[in-house]
């Protein structure tokens, strides 16, 4: 018996190791058939199964038992079986269910994308754009909370939280002691640090990166710029605590934000420490590798560029500029 099992996802067959989830099998194929995931995070143990956006239809259970599964299943939690057939975007039932899930996720999510710093790189924004309805049917008051500062560098907007639990897993798994969790149940659930204790840990900043929405944001980046006006650049440095591989977000010549690098599933490649994230914001601290790869569908690529410093449209002529100094100064507003 071979140690690989064969599954068919949307008509594409793939061989994966036993025990792989349907979502990870689909990610091995890649492309449009990968179910979206808001709560599952491959780097965080135990994540997944909460948001239900990755629902798929299993039309054939396995080779041994070919009956379809009675209900749609969460692909991040269901492991594959030999001969399993899965439908994702080819099943209208799944597409319809996902639309319902998006509507539920957006019930309490405020429509403050123009204010939110996550806009442009927000997973929920992409998800709602691709799968959601344009209008809400919810008629009641959305639940609101005050903003909470988690430490002096991270801000929690509980309004925007979709309770994916990713940040609590970060706090649990990357740190030694548990400092953050979810308090309350059901509609009253909210992210909190116990007794509002400030999180003081070298890797706490990663909860900003794992947050799929704008609930946890970088306070040092707050309202500095919209994401699509900044230019991401891959860089690294010798860091004693982490790998030091980051993305620098440039606005003009200034680094205004440092984040971890993300892969094609919008997951952090390697977690970075708070020193890299918050304290090293000068070009001289970093060895620059080159512009980061950004999907062409992303709004960030609207000012995409291939070279770090694009060639000037008009060649600079120093002699001419000196001669026309007065004229040039007139073009600038003092």
């Amino acid at each position: 018996m071979s140690d690989k099992v064969k599954v068919i996802i949307d008509g594409i067959s793939v061989e994966v190791a036993p025990g792989t989830t349907i979502l990870n099998a689909a990610r091995q194929i890649g492309g449009d058939i990968v179910p979206p995931a808001m709560c599952y995070y491959s780097k965080l143990e135990g994540s997944g199964g909460k948001c239900r956006t990755c629902l798929v239809k299993v039309s054939k259970g396995s080779e041994a038992d070919p009956r379809p599964m009675p209900k749609l299943v969460a692909s991040c939690r269901t492991t594959v079986m030999e001969g399993m057939e899965v439908q994702n975007i080819t099943s209208p039932e799944v597409v319809d269910a996902r639309k319902g899930v998006v509507e539920m996720l957006l019930i309490n999510h405020p429509l403050d994308c123009p204010v939110c710093d996550q806009a442009g790189e927000c997973d929920l924004q992409d998800l709602a754009f691709n799968h959601g309805a344009a209008e809400t049917r919810y008629e009641f008051e959305r639940r609101t909370f005050d903003r909470i500062d988690i430490g002096d560098k991270i801000q929690l907007h509980m309004n925007r939280c979709i309770l994916c639990y990713r940040c609590t897993y970060v706090a649990d798994q990357l740190t030694d002691c548990r400092q953050q969790g979810i308090v309350g149940r059901g509609d009253h659930a909210e992210i909190s640090t116990y007794i509002e204790k400030a999180i003081d840990n070298d890797f706490s900043g990663n909860m900003i990166d794992v947050c799929p929405v704008g609930a946890l944001t970088d306070k040092t980046f707050r309202f500095k710029s919209r994401v699509w006006f900044t230019k991401p650049v891959d860089a690294h440095r010798d860091c004693p605590t982490c790998s030091g591989k980051v993305m620098l977000w440039y606005k003009g010549d200034d680094v205004i934000r440092v984040t971890a690098r993300k892969d094609e599933n919008h997951e952090v490649e390697e977690f970075i420490c708070n020193t890299c994230r918050f304290d090293k914001k000068a070009t001289k601290d970093w060895v620059i590798e080159g512009p980061s790869r950004i999907e062409h569908t992303s709004v960030i690529s609207s000012n995409h560029y291939d070279t770090l410093k694009p060639l000037p449209v008009i060649q600079e002529n120093k002699a001419l500029m000196a001669a026309n100094k007065e004229e040039l100064e007139r073009t600038k507003k003092s």
Partner: peptide, 22 residues
């Protein structure tokens, strides 16, 4: 105006700039 930057993004002539504040 909430300085969301969508006008500047959509501007084909790049005529708009803004600085946001809290």
């Amino acid at each position: 105006c909430t300085a969301c930057g969508l006008c500047a993004l959509s501007c084909p002539a790049e005529a708009i700039t803004m600085v946001a504040a809290e």
